[in-house]
Amino acid sequence: MHRTIPRVIALSQQNAGPTIARNRGLDIAKGEYVYFADSDDRLELNLVESMLIRLEETSTKMAFMQSLTKPQAPSF
């Protein structure tokens, strides 16, 4: 089952590392902003919207996020 999202383009290519993949994405990107998520990232519900609002409020062109980890229950 595939879900179509008008502003999202899914690309597929042989594994050549994240730099090659991101550069390919940048080559075809048409939007004002680009967001890269890694396969192990867990995104909060309104993360991208919150970042976009803050970028526009501050007339900032680039944002970085700090990694946050939640404590995990011990495994026995």
Rank of each mutant, 00 (worst) to 15 (best):
D38F: 10
D38P: 02
A29M: 11
P6W: 07
I20P: 03
R3G: 13
T19F: 01
G31T: 02
A16G: 10
L43D: 05
I28E: 08
E32A: 15
Q14M: 07
L45G: 03
H2K: 10
F36E: 05
S39G: 12
M1L: 11
V34N: 04
R3D: 11
E49Y: 00
L43F: 10
R42G: 12
S59I: 06
P18Y: 10
K61E: 08
T58E: 03
N46Q: 03
F76V: 13
L55M: 12
T60H: 06
M1W: 02
T58Q: 06
R54Y: 01
T69Q: 14
R24A: 12
D27M: 07
H2F: 12
F64V: 08
I53N: 01
G25C: 08
S59A: 13
S75Y: 14
F76Y: 14
E44H: 08
G31H: 02
A63F: 01
M62Y: 00
D27F: 06
A63Q: 01
D38N: 14
G25L: 00
G17I: 03
I53H: 12
R7N: 13
S67C: 12
I20A: 07
F36D: 03
G17W: 07
F64H: 05
E56G: 03
A16I: 06
S12G: 11
N15S: 14
P71Q: 03
V8Y: 14
E49P: 02
A29W: 06
M65E: 09
T69A: 15
M1C: 05
M51R: 04
S50V: 00
K30Q: 11
D27C: 04
G17T: 01
L52H: 01
G25M: 04
S12M: 12
T19C: 08
V48Q: 03
L43E: 07
V48A: 05
I53R: 04
D41H: 13
L43R: 05
V48P: 00
I53K: 06
S50H: 04
D40E: 15
R3W: 11
T4G: 10
E44K: 10
L26C: 06
L52Y: 00
T58V: 07
Y33R: 05
M62T: 08
N46M: 00
T4N: 12
D38K: 10
T60M: 09
I9S: 11
Q72R: 14
S39W: 14
N23I: 01
S12N: 08
E49H: 01
G25Y: 04
A16L: 06
M62P: 09
L47V: 07
L68A: 15
A10L: 12
M51Q: 01
F36S: 03
P71E: 02
S59G: 11
Q72C: 13
E57N: 06
E57Y: 07
Q14G: 10
Q66G: 15
H2E: 08
I53A: 05
L47Q: 03
I5C: 10
T58R: 04
A73C: 12
I53G: 01
L45W: 13
A21Q: 00
Q14L: 09
L68T: 10
T69H: 15
F76N: 14
T58Y: 04
Q14I: 09
T69K: 15
R7T: 02
F64M: 10
D27N: 08
A73I: 12
K61R: 13
R3H: 14
V34G: 02
S59M: 07
R24F: 11
S12Y: 13
D38Y: 11
K70H: 09
